[in-house]
């Protein structure tokens, strides 16, 4: 009897300990996510659409002008953006991490510098590079002239060909510290026996990367790509700060985040907002992110 009472009392405390976190997390993060998805089946004016409309918002998004064009454009741009960020940020970060784990001095200093931009708000980074690339000030073009590359000069943010790659490079500049930290931690974690074995075998650097570093840090590569994917498919600020919420020029930098923002909260920008339609876009984003996470988890855990 005594024992039973005690167990019951402990149960009560477990509940008490879990309550604050469960309450805040569920009410303000999980439920809003699903309630927002529910909004995608409603239509109407204002912030709370109240007329049930079934899949009408999705039909609109996938079949009607201009929504269909905007959706497929945002999707393609987002894929391109992700691929470019993956190269400029993660692949570069991987090779820098290999250099940072060699027998060289000053590694800590380099790592700190590479990591510094991570402390900045995307909005600050976006505005800073908007000024640097601005043809009126022309500081970037001046640098190109100095090193004899003036034939490259163009309106970087105004040319539909260069705008999106520029945004990807700026994002990589901002976030390259993250993959570097992950990869250096992973490479530092490779055990001595394996390193010894490769030394005896006389493996060269490429062999080392292919047969030793790559397979052993594969789960970490998976994590880095998941973080990048989730981040890129919900990215908004870099487009907003460098190319406005319209994804200028001519929607060349319009990705899901800016499309969602414009559609949902557009009234301030003289476009009538459609919260139900915005909710449908958010739902599509959620599904894409889920699929992406599952794919990268599968890829990184597969052993071959």
């Amino acid at each position: 009897m005594e024992m039973f009472k005690k167990v019951k009392k402990v149960r009560y405390y477990i509940f008490l300990f879990l309550l604050p976190a469960l309450f805040i997390y569920t009410i303000f993060m999980i439920l809003p996510l699903f309630n927002s998805m529910r909004m995608s089946f409603y239509t109407g004016k204002g912030i709370v659409p109240d007329q049930f409309c079934g899949f009408q918002n999705y039909v609109k998004l996938f079949t009607q002008f201009p929504f269909r064009e905007r959706l497929s454009n945002a999707f393609l741009n987002n894929i391109k953006f992700f691929l470019m960020v993956s190269i400029f940020q993660n692949v570069t970060g991987f090779f820098l991490a290999i250099l940072l784990t060699r027998n060289v001095k000053g590694v800590k200093f380099f790592r700190t510098i590479y990591f510094l931009p991570t402390a900045l708000s995307v909005i600050v980074v976006g505005f800073l590079f908007r000024l640097i690339l601005n043809p009126v000030w022309g500081i970037f073009d001046k640098i190109l002239r100095v090193i004899g590359l003036d034939f490259l000069i163009r309106p970087w943010l105004g040319d539909p060909v260069t705008a999106l790659p520029v945004l990807a490079i700026v994002t990589a500049w901002h976030m390259i510290g993250i993959p570097i930290i992950f990869f250096t931690a992973g490479i530092d974690g490779i055990s001595e026996e394996i390193i010894e074995a490769s030394r005896i075998d006389g493996v060269n650097i490429w062999g080392e990367i292919r047969h030793m570093i790559f397979p052993l840090v594969k789960p970490i590569i998976g994590i880095v790509f998941i973080l990048t994917f989730v981040g890129n498919f919900s990215e908004f600020e870099i487009v907003y700060s460098m190319e406005t919420a319209y994804g200028n020029p001519a929607y060349a930098t319009d990705i899901f985040g800016s499309f969602f923002y414009r559609t949902t909260f557009g009234t301030v920008m003289n476009v009538v907002s459609d919260v139900g339609l915005g909710a449908a876009i958010a739902t599509i984003m959620f599904i894409l992110i889920l699929i992406g996470v599952i794919i990268f988890l599968r890829l990184s855990q597969r052993t071959d």
């Binding site: 976190a21 993060m29 439920l31 809003p32 996510l33 998941i226 989730v230 498919f233 915005g278 992110i289």
Partner: peptide, 25 residues
Amino acid sequence: IFFYFLAGLMIPIRLGTINIMQMFI
């Protein structure tokens, strides 16, 4: 419960912004 919390690391909270805004209003 542990994994229920961890799921939050993968979900961008901004996808629930519509309902968050409605709730705060």
